[in-house]
Design a binder for these strands. Structure first.
Lengths: 236, 236
DNA sequence: GGGATTTCTGAGCTTTCTCTCAGCTCCTCA
DNA sequence: TGAGGAGCTGAGAGAAAGCTCAGAAATCCC
């Protein structure tokens, strides 16, 4: 798992959202929020999270449906269902759908954090997400292969590593220094220009298969990987 | 997974054992019971179960120890720890030891079944069988034989071991170092070049029967066994 | 004992990758 | 409008990764 685990919080109440975001951030996590089912699904299907906190009562698409859709797509990110209802039928249903835990409102923040940490630990044991998705672009971390709409894209190890980092933080800007650290290691064996060069290589190869707009430059800040549609949703 | 999943129930209380056996059997599972740590270990290490329900408080050998011993022996059967203690420290310990879930007594039977089903689902994805298939290529681990579309392929022990490791992790890249460790043992009796040589041998023999494309090189990462088609798209 | 098989290393070779340099464009801001 | 910084890119040296061959040692099996 990365240094700061990435957690997606899905809840329709702005107050809860803000409280959880603040609390979990203070616990050392990178928190991204979503307010309704469809946008949660869209963000979560990138597979770039270490855990998802999913409210069941959601506008647009219930938490159950979101979970079901994610699992159907092969997204295995650990999910903690949150509900106001306290019934064991619901609990069983949720677990049957592939949830990894269940929390009943009202819950104490301490318990929540403990549960999230347990989820993160489990994720760490299994090895983080097997597959990252950015629109039609799929980054298969296990096979170390990338494909665009089914068409394989051949990348060198360094190129893959750069894309992997960008994709695993989809929707967030990654600075060149962060990339240097993540890809080249702490000893700073390369200059920032190397990052620019590799992003260039990457773009050329992605361009060739019609995925050119996936990695964007945010002048003065770094690079941003996204599907091009969802950035409005992402917090943090 | 086989038609009727095989579940091992380990608990020292005869009442609990009987109840679980009856209940899970009614749910369509084949249930085997064990009453203490040593016998649980003995039965479980055959690797012939799809899931294990493991009580922590056991005579002879605690559930923790059993789990630890199993994982140390390379048995990956999903394990659901059952405990009367409700402490997050214990929970963390269990998950760190390689447990796949945790249940605190008293639990409702419905929740238990849901958890077991979740385990079975996860196990089903990973596949445990004695016979591995990669397209038309069949690796029979018990008989230590390989055949391509019915036609036997004669491999030396080392060649078989290499193919076995690659096939058992089909779809994931296996590094040369991992192969060295898995096939040659921890003492690093051979160099990486030996791996390259053996993959070469393997490819030559597989090529001769039309299975040449099964073992692919992923430059900079290692080797990847796959069915040959581009399976990069969807999971599930 | 001796032929066949298997294991493993070292060297040579090709292919591919990595990363720096230098020049260039583009944006920002005064 | 033009100076300065940020970012992009082509070229190319050097290194690394991977494959193969030949052959030495060990082992197996009549």
């Amino acid at each position: 798992m990365r240094v700061r685990p990435r957690v997606l919080v899905v809840d329709d109440e702005p107050g809860v959202r803000r409280a959880l975001q603040r609390g979990l951030t203070a616990e050392g996590m990178d928190v991204v929020v979503a307010a309704d089912g469809p946008s949660a699904l869209q963000v979560a299907r990138t597979g770039s999270f270490d855990a998802i906190l999913l409210d069941i009562m959601l506008p647009g698409l219930s938490g159950y449906r979101v979970l079901q859709a994610l699992r159907a797509e092969g997204v295995r990110t650990p999910v903690l269902l949150v509900s106001a209802k306290d019934g064991e039928i619901d609990q069983a249903d949720g677990l049957d759908l592939g949830a990894d835990g269940y929390l009943v409102k009202p819950f104490s923040f301490v318990v929540l954090v403990a549960q999230v940490r347990a989820l993160l630990r489990r994720g760490a044991v299994e090895g983080t997400g097997q597959r990252l998705r950015l629109g039609d672009l799929v980054v298969d971390r296990a096979a170390r292969q990338v494909s665009m709409a089914g068409e394989p894209v051949s990348l060198s190890p360094r190129e893959f590593a750069v894309l992997d980092v960008l994709a695993s933080r989809a929707g967030s800007v990654v600075t060149k220094d962060e990339l240097l650290r993540a890809v080249w290691g702490d000893e700073q064996a390369a200059t920032r220009n190397a990052v620019e060069v590799y992003v260039g290589y990457l773009r050329r190869k992605l361009d060739a298969v019609g995925a050119g707009s996936i990695v964007r430059t945010v002048r003065g800040h770094g690079y941003l990987a996204s599907t091009g549609e969802i950035d409005a949703v992402m917090g943090s």
